[in-house]
Each structure stands twice: as structure tokens, then as C-alpha cells.
Amino acid sequence: MFHIYCPHCAEYREEEEFHAKGQAHIPRPLDPEACSDKEWGEYLFFRKNPRGLHHELWVHAAGCRKFFNMTRDTQTYEIKEVYKIGEQPSVVAE
């Protein structure tokens, strides 16, 4: 069970308070109508799914209910850093 530092609460809390929400940094296309079906499908469904460092979106669901990003190793499960939405990671996955 992960021990997660919520950047909004500024505290370590148990994983049970959080939900993982998938890959981070997938902006909604600004003009969806301009997207082809392929582009829209890729936005919706296609993911990096790396073995190793991964930027993910999490929400402190049973806490402050705020979303934030996490850089985590999907093999060792080490959390490298957490950062707020709109911020850029300092440890960057490939």
C-alpha cells in the first residue's frame, strides 16, 4: 500500500484515501471537431503504459478531493515526486 504525499494537504496519507486516474498530461484537444476519428480515439484510449517511470493523475478522493500528478516507477512502485496540476515534473519519464 502506497504512502502518498498530497501536495495540496502537504501531508503523507494512506493510498486508501486516493484514486489513481490514469496517465497524466493528456490535454483535451482544444478543437475536438478538428480531430479525425483516429486522433480522437488516441486521445480517448491510447496510453503510454510504461514499465518504469510514469506520470500519472491521482485524486485525493477521501481527503481534499483535489487532483494532482505523480511520477512513479511502475516496476519498483517508488514515488519520485508529486506535483500540482499545471506544474511540470522535475523527474521526467522517457
Binding site: F46, R47, K48, P50, R51
Partner: peptide, 18 residues
């Protein structure tokens, strides 16, 4: 579970998460 790793070698992404 490792499909994403092979797909990466092939240069595409898959609609998958492990």
C-alpha cells in the same frame, strides 16, 4: 502485461494499461 513495452519498440501506443 508487457504489450506496452513491445508496442513501444514498434513505435506505437496501444489502448491498454497494465
Amino acid at each position: 502485461g508487457n504489450s506496452g513495452v513491445i508496442a513501444k519498440m514498434a513505435g506505437f501506443e496501444l489502448p491498454l494499461e497494465s
